[in-house]
Design a protein around this nucleic acid. Structure first.
Lengths: 106, 106
DNA sequence: CGCGAATATGTCTGATCCGGCATATACTGA
DNA sequence: TCAGTATATGCCGGATCAGACATATTCGCG
């Protein structure tokens, strides 16, 4: 598993631009990263729509403020599982999740 | 985290019917489970479309045959992360993933 | 039936991810 | 500026998930 490359990328604030161009990530790898980014962005949007602090969202999810912060930053230590569960807790439904996953949103 | 309930469910072959009805899973929980199921089903379909054995798909994913079997069974020990990465390796793109996540497909 | 290939199931060990906590930094209004 | 609140970052110990392997079980075909 070449997750190292990704780790480095994320460590260096690669939020700008599109992951595929910066390093020799395969298409699949950059797709995966961008899906995580899209979920992260949507999570923040949804949280703000509720006027929730990260701590409040954390309570709904059953998690902690720091983890929410990391989710929204699409930190490398957060899984898609957690993002999806959090989005559901934030009121997203399957259809909306599908839209987030499926469209480039940029 | 009340993942225990889910563990039991999965252990007992809950493939029939819809998760929400069997036990007192919250809507979010059953949504999550059903997303996993949908991904699992799609993975099998895609693999068969390529005429790949589980072992062959495993090689493409960088995993093992047993893990592929568990993915397709939506075993409780497989994460959405792995399912998504496997689907990408099996040729699905973001749009298709979005469709799988977003529609009830049953 | 018998046999080989495919798939399923169980279990190890190490890697990854989790929540929690402490702390740093950023933001807002008085 | 300063206090209070929100967000970000780092770390730890325990929980979960990974790949690998061994071993059933099922399937297709002669």
């Amino acid at each position: 598993m070449k997750t190292e490359k990704r780790k480095k990328l994320e460590a260096a604030g690669w939020k700008v631009g599109d992951a595929h161009e910066f390093l020799a990530l395969t298409q699949d790898e950059s797709d995966f990263v961008e899906i995580k980014l899209a979920l992260a962005r949507r999570l923040r949007t949804l949280r703000e729509k509720h006027n929730w602090t990260q701590a409040e969202l954390a309570k709904h999810v059953g998690s902690s403020q720091s983890r929410v912060a990391k989710m929204e930053a699409a930190d490398s230590t957060v899984s898609v599982d957690l993002l999806v569960r959090s989005l559901l807790a934030a009121g997203a439904n399957r259809r909306e999740l599908g839209r987030v996953v499926g469209s480039k949103s940029r």
